[in-house]
Amino acid sequence: MSDQQKRLREIIVCALFVAITGILAQVSIPVPPVPFTGQTLAVGLTATIIGSRLGTFSMIGYMALGAVGVPVFSSFSAGLQTIVGQTGGFIIGFIPAAFIIGFILERTKFSIPMAIIANVIGMFVTLGFGVIQLKYVADLSWAAAFAGGVTPFIPLGLVKAVLAAWIGIIVRKRLIAANALPVTKRKRIENSEIGIS
C-alpha cells in the first residue's frame, strides 16, 4: 500500500470516528450546568480502537467541525461560543484524553484491563479540563465547580470507561484481523493483539 493510500485510509478512519462522536453526543441528559452525554464514551472508544495519533486527530476534527458550525456537539449545538462557554472545557479535554488513553495502551498492551485503566485516567483528564473552564467561565467557587462538573459524572464515567474498554478492544481486534485498521506497529505485536502466535 502506498503512502498516499495509507493517508487516505487514516483520513477515512478519523472521519468515521468524528461521525461516531457526533452521533453519541446526541445521547444527552440535560442536567445543568453540565449535561450527561455519550461524548466521553465516544472518546474512549476512539482512542482504544485507533490509538493516540489517530484518536487525537479525530478529536481535533470533531472540535473543529463543531467550531465552524456543524451541529455535532450535544443537543445539536455548535459554534465557538460552545467551546468557550461553560461546558467547552470538556470538549477541549477530549483531545488530551484521547492522546493519553491511546498512549497508555500503546506503551503497555491493548487488553481490556489496561484499557479500563487508560479510560479511567482519560475520564479524569476530561473532567479536569472541564472543571477548570466551568469554574472561571461560570464564576464559581472550586467547590461549586467540582459539585457541578465532576462529582455527578464519576459513577457514570466509570461505567463508560469499562464499556469503552470492553467494546473498544473487541472491535480493535476484529478490525486488525480483517486488515481494516491502519496499524503501524511491528507485525508480531499486531499478531499478539489478535491472538496469533
Results as ranks from 00 to 15, higher is better:
M1N: 10
M1K: 08
S2P: 13
Q4N: 13
I11N: 03
A15H: 00
A15T: 13
L16G: 15
L16A: 14
I20C: 05
G22E: 00
I23F: 14
L24Y: 04
A25P: 03
Q26W: 03
Q26E: 13
S28D: 03
I29Q: 05
I29A: 12
I29D: 06
P32M: 12
P33V: 14
P35R: 11
T37I: 05
G44W: 02
G44N: 00
L45M: 04
T46Q: 11
A47N: 01
T48D: 04
I49E: 01
I49G: 04
I50H: 05
S52P: 00
R53C: 00
L54I: 01
G55V: 06
T56V: 06
F57A: 15
S58D: 08
I60V: 15
I60G: 01
I60Y: 01
Y62V: 06
Y62N: 07
A64L: 15
A64G: 04
V68K: 08
G69R: 10
V70F: 12
V70Y: 06
P71A: 12
V72F: 07
V72P: 04
F73S: 06
F76L: 12
S77M: 11
S77C: 04
S77L: 10
A78S: 15
G79S: 06
L80E: 02
I83W: 01
G85N: 07
Q86W: 01
T87K: 08
G88M: 09
F90M: 07
F90T: 01
G93Q: 09
F94K: 01
F94N: 07
I95N: 00
I95A: 00
P96V: 00
P96R: 02
P96T: 00
A97M: 01
A97R: 02
F99H: 00
F99I: 02
L105R: 04
R107E: 07
R107P: 03
T108A: 04
T108N: 03
F110N: 04
P113N: 13
P113W: 03
M114H: 14
M114W: 15
T126S: 12
G128V: 11
F129C: 14
G130I: 09
G130W: 10
Q133E: 13
L134E: 07
V137L: 06
A138L: 12
A138Q: 07
A138N: 09
D139W: 06
W142V: 09
W142M: 13
A143F: 08
A144S: 13
A145R: 12
A147P: 00
A147M: 11
A147H: 04
F153L: 10
I154K: 08
P155I: 11
P155E: 11
V159G: 10
V159D: 11
K160A: 10
A161D: 06
A164M: 09
I167E: 09
I170W: 14
V171I: 15
R172E: 04
K173W: 05
L175S: 05
A177T: 12
P182M: 10
V183L: 13
K185N: 12
K187F: 11
I189N: 10
S192Y: 06
I194E: 10
I194Y: 07
G195Y: 05
